[in-house]
Design a protein around this nucleic acid. Structure first.
Lengths: 208, 208
DNA sequence: TAAAAAATTGACCATTTGGAAAAATATGAA
DNA sequence: TTCATATTTTTCCAAATGGTCAATTTTTTA
């Protein structure tokens, strides 16, 4: 029977659960939920299918675990925006952190994108709860900055959407980006180039 | 055996092929390729599975047909950018057209996003060919505008990426957008609001 | 070190799914 | 109306896949 407790008891449990989750992230983010098989994940984790199912009740549970973890990671950078900091610095810092995430955690980004694309069946409640609450809170901060004349007027919610979209694009649409940039400009520098473009562009757009 | 010719011969063939493609777009964009079954598509098209397979050799062929059509539709708005027009008008016009597409053709947008997300296995060649060629061409136009001092300096490729990202976001991440905006602001007006935000924001960012 | 608990595996099964074949029915041209 | 062709349905099958179970092996504990 599959392990049920939240906290792994043994060393082996801790290690193998991690190996499974890492493998699952790889497979799920590449092929989507339905496009991934337990066998694939087990192989990527270097174990047999029944052995994997000793650690997780079923495929759904692996996916759910990944999604739950992901949301925390995903919201962290926005959380860090400080209402007492310099608006421009805060926003460009946020952009840089988000670009870093697209570079360093593309699998997580794609897993999230896939979930959104298919209607967020496992995430909707949290989107309407935690996420909305956080965004509303930060939108208020931005609104205050606008009222204080520190940045130019704009809709804070759509501003946040646009930052999400532009930064995550470099992970989610990576193939397209590399195809268009070609071999010369499509190397690792593309993230740096993107960050530079976005930071100066948002700076210009928000300068009061 | 399945119909092979490109041009449907009979009225029934033309009608049913369309019905199948429309149903397939619905199902594929909702569930992804692997997540969709021929049975689902057939049901959505109001016919039996074997009957559907009379018109298309297999599931792959339906998908491929959709993707092929999609690319043309997808590139059309960028194609329309006129190097002799007013730069600001051209770019805001492009943004508006892209937002319109997210509003009116969300299924197409999601089908495309799904394809990109999973490495564009069926599209890569065209991305590196037609798409790159088109983008390079328009990037040159933008560069000329910059040199003529008509818009401020920026990387045209990343500018185009950012327009793609921000506009398509409203189709691909629709659940998230609606969840965050809530019932009051998440209605149909969200596209109008997005368009307004983006147009003024890009205007500011590109003003020389 | 021996028993208990944890971890792993091989064999197996039911269901779903993509797809084929052939027979039956509808449609349209002569 | 008749015949050829186009369309549709019924039946079926093989492979893939999610998941179970009992037996075996490994690890930990007393």
């Amino acid at each position: 029977m599959a392990i049920v407790q939240t906290k792994p008891k043994t060393r082996i449990q801790a290690e193998n659960s991690e190996r499974i989750l890492d493998a699952a992230l790889e497979i799920f983010s590449e092929n989507g939920f339905r496009g991934s098989t337990i066998d694939q994940i087990a192989a990527a984790a270097g174990m047999s299918k029944p052995n994997l199912l000793y650690y997780f009740k079923n495929k759904e549970e692996i996916h759910q675990t990944l999604i739950d973890r992901l949301l925390k990671i995903w919201l962290a950078p926005l959380e860090k925006i400080d209402e007492n900091g310099d608006p421009m610095t805060e926003i460009t810092g946020y952009i840089r952190r988000k670009i870093e995430m697209s570079k360093d955690l593309p699998r997580e980004s794609r897993l999230f994108a896939n979930e959104m694309l298919h209607g967020a069946p496992r995430t909707l409640a949290k989107l309407e709860g935690d996420l909305k609450e956080l965004v509303d809170r930060k939108a208020e901060v931005i609104n205050r900055w606008i009222q204080d004349g520190k940045i130019s007027e704009c809709d804070p919610w759509h501003l946040i959407f646009s930052i999400w979209a532009t930064t995550q694009h470099y992970a989610d649409f990576d193939v397209q980006v590399r195809a268009v940039l070609g071999p010369e400009r499509g190397g690792e520098s593309r993230f740096q180039d993107a960050a530079e473009f976005l930071e100066t562009f948002y700076l210009r757009g928000l300068k009061p």
